[in-house]
C-alpha cells in the first residue's frame, strides 16, 4: 500500500474465483447446445496412442448401418486416421492440432462446421492419443468414453485417474490378447469403480468381435 508515502497509488484486491478452463467450458456449452439443436449425439473417445480408438470407430460404423455416423478426427500431425475412416464412406472432419496434446472446444467447433450442413446422428470425436491432457477439456460431448487396451498394462487407472473421472464408459479393448499379457480384468474394473462408480465397462475385441454387441446397444440407447 502506498497511501502512507503519498505517491498516489494504491493496491486493489479483486476476488475472481474463476476456473482456468472456464473459457473452454463456455465454448463447450455452446457446442453442446449446437449439437442438441441438430439432434447429434456426440461421443468423445479418449485413450493412449494405439489404444484402438480408430479401430473401434470402424467396427462400430460397420455394425450401425442404419445410423448416420460422422467423425471429428484429432491427430497431432497427420491425416492418416481421417483418410482411413473416410474409406468407410462416412463424413470425416480432420483436426490437425499442430502438436497440441488434446482437442479443445474451439477446435471441435471449427471442425463441426464441416459436418453441420448434413449433421450426423452419431458423432465420434477421436481425441489426440493421450490419457492425460484431454481429460480436462470438455468438448460439448454427451458421452466421454475412455478406450483402454489390455496391452497397456493394468496400472493405467492409477496413473491417470483424471481420464476415468468423468467417463460415462470405459472400453477395455483388445481382449483377444488377454492370454498373452498380464492384465487382470477384474482388478482393473475394481480400480475404475473406485475412481468412478458410474462408469460402464465394455470389454471387447475389435479383432474377434467379442463383446461388441453390448457396446453397440449402449450407443443405441
Amino acid at each position: 500500500m502506498c497511501e502512507s508515502c503519498g505517491c498516489g497509488e494504491r493496491t486493489l484486491r479483486v476476488t475472481v474465483s474463476r476456473g482456468l478452463l472456464s473459457e473452454n467450458e463456455r465454448l463447450a456449452r455452446e457446442n453442446r447446445a449446437w449439437f442438441k439443436r441438430l439432434g447429434v449425439r456426440v461421443v468423445n473417445l479418449v485413450g493412449s496412442p494405439g489404444a484402438g480408438k480408430t479401430s473401434l470407430i470402424e467396427a462400430t460404423v460397420r455394425r450401425l448401418p442404419e445410423c448416420r455416423v460422422g467423425v471429428i478426427e484429432g491427430d497431432p500431425e497427420t491425416r492418416r486416421d481421417a483418410e482411413r475412416l473416410s474409406r468407410l464412406g462416412i463424413p470425416v472432419a480432420a483436426v490437425t492440432t499442430g502438436g497440441v496434446c488434446h482437442l479443445d472446444a474451439r477446435m471441435v467447433h471449427r471442425a463441426f462446421h464441416e459436418l453441420a450442413a448434413s449433421p450426423p446422428e452419431l458423432l465420434f470425436i477421436e481425441n489426440v492419443g493421450n490419457l492425460l491432457c484431454p481429460a480436462d477439456f470438455d468438448l460439448g460431448e454427451d458421452l466421454t468414453v475412455v478406450v483402454l487396451s489390455v496391452t497397456e498394462g493394468e496400472d493405467k487407472p492409477e496413473k491417470y485417474p483424471q481420464a476415468f473421472r468423468r467417463a460415462s464408459a470405459v472400453v477395455l479393448t483388445k481382449v483377444d490378447l488377454l492370454p498373452h499379457v498380464d492384465f487382470d480384468l477384474a482388478r482393473v474394473a475394481e480400480l475404475i469403480a473406485r475412481i468412478n462408480p458410474e462408469a460402464r465397462l465394455f470389454p471387447l475385441s475389435v479383432r474377434t468381435g467379442e463383446g461388441l454387441e453390448p457396446w453397440i446397444e449402449f450407443l443405441r440407447a
Binding site: 475472481v16 474463476r18 476456473g19 480436462d136
Partner: peptide, 11 residues
C-alpha cells in the same frame, strides 16, 4: 484449477 484473487496497482 482456479484463479482466486488478483492484486492490482491503481492510480
Amino acid at each position: 484449477l482456479t484463479l482466486r484473487e488478483v492484486e492490482f496497482e491503481v492510480a
